[in-house]
Design a protein around this nucleic acid. Structure first.
Lengths: 267, 267
DNA sequence: CCCTGTGGTGTTATATTATCAACACTGGTG
DNA sequence: CACCAGTGTTGATAATATAACACCACAGGG
């Protein structure tokens, strides 16, 4: 819970596409930890190459070590590479931005994206950490993941990203039930203003959710027709990615989804 | 030095392309740490998504978090993508396997590779951690890096990979002098049997080495002609990658290298 | 049925870590 | 020019998380 390792690694969350370099005091302020402690932690992580310090500006950034680790994992389990063409197809079919995320500890890690070609599109921050409660992807994963994950999420503080974000425990639980009844999750402007999300769960070998694939559409552009089309496309993408992961959908889920698609406007 | 964070992160070094999944006892044995300690560390790193535990086999592997971190870094500082075409050219020009590495804490992290098309070629493990003292890349980086790095390497234990590996302090220092005199480094079978390495340093904005680019040739195939050709190609690749990094070669180095190429058989 | 291996879990002495303070340095401002 | 607010860094001590040890439950061979 409050181990030094966890605290040190939590510092990595603050590095993003928008702020790839951060100073010591800045990191200490955001993490709420002491400057000296943060300094030692960054020093330790720099020894391992997870972060590196710019010699002149003294700013810290993610190090070459993360590239190496990603290469090792991607060589052994090529998930990003496998997802990319499926996301491309999903984005082309729907005309919108698609992305896939995997359960990564306490949060959902955005692993691969394919942006829409349209001028007006949902653009998302590469490698963003997605909360479970405020995103369609998060709810899709949560609904089919291990129950312990749901407990952990419900017992942790939840940030209200917009006025539509579900933060109450009971609201989230009923929403989870809706997701289970549908086989996919839907979320309008709960994470970002004017963004509508449709997501379907990804499964691992054990039949538990290990992530989610999602389509993000500008809210004003989400018509009933577009919605049906997107649901079908997302479910198919999820099926293909799950297969690519060597995963297995739980009993009943495949039939539920198949019935959903048959009854829809797409034949 | 012996902080818990460093010890925990050192566990990540044991995951490789060949052994992407490791058990708890195995990791404890290799790291020389207590099982209970390793268990807690892995738990902490799992919370952050750096590692994940297979539900059925209970084995640990690198987690989705490393993919996310790599994406964040690569989006902000696209080095791998920039290196790839240059490595392709280097590999094509020499007909051998090329790779680039960056200084990553106490070791050199292999970031990008391009394997030779020949049936008999040097094949290297993706994302391998390269020691400074036993590889051409390591010696090239060491010769032009911050002096503190050289001190740290010289004061740490050095493994003898082959019977040609330099482990003695004085031998390494004289070799470093040779590298500085040449502007590139050469190493025959010091890291791997039957592998000849030629490497040139990469520089950052401050003019200090931040990595190296290298060509690995089967020793028996390294003729005087091939050697001249490879030296020129590696130096040119290093120049281009340094430029792509926004780096600056130190005073004198550019002239030294230019003179080297002019006097060589390639006009 | 032992025996050896595995992953995992307690408990206490110990050693690391958090905290606070002060330091040197920088850049901007009155 | 001195001041101020900011930075990164380094010591000291007090508090606490950690390491070590033993132990447990389980799985697979011999």
């Amino acid at each position: 819970m409050s181990s030094t390792v966890t605290k040190a690694l939590s510092l990595l969350e603050f590095f993003s596409e928008d702020e790839p370099e951060l100073g010591l005091s800045d990191l200490a302020r955001r993490s709420g930890m002491d400057k000296a402690a943060v300094h030692r932690m960054l020093g330790s992580m720099a020894e391992s190459g997870l972060v590196e310090q710019q010699a002149d500006s003294r700013l810290y950034r993610l190090g070459a070590g993360v590239l190496r680790l990603a290469r090792v994992r991607e060589t052994a389990f090529p998930v990003s590479a496998m997802m990319q063409p499926i996301l491309l197809r999903l984005s082309t079919e729907t005309g919108e931005t698609a992305h896939a995320s995997l359960i990564s500890g306490r949060a959902l890690a955005n692993i691969a994206t394919c942006e829409s070609k349209k001028g007006s599109r949902v653009s998302l921050v590469a490698g963003e950490v997605l909360p479970y409660h405020s995103t369609a992807s998060g709810l899709a994963a949560l609904a089919y993941a291990d129950d312990k994950l749901l407990d952990r999420v419900l017992s942790a503080p939840r940030e209200a990203r917009t006025r539509f974000t579900l933060t109450e425990r009971d609201d989230i639980l009923t929403r989870i039930e809706v997701v289970r009844a549908n086989g996919f999750s839907e979320s309008d402007q709960a994470h970002e203003e004017d963004v509508h999300g449709l997501a379907a769960p990804l499964f691992d070998r054990s039949g538990r959710a290990c992530g989610a694939v999602s389509v993000s559409t500008p809210s004003h552009r989400m018509t009933a027709e577009q919605r049906q089309l997107s649901i079908a496309a997302v479910l198919r993408a999820a099926e293909d990615i799950t297969a690519g992961l060597g995963g297995q959908r739980p009993r009943g889920y495949a039939d539920q989804v198949a019935g959903l698609l048959a009854s829809g406007p797409r034949d």
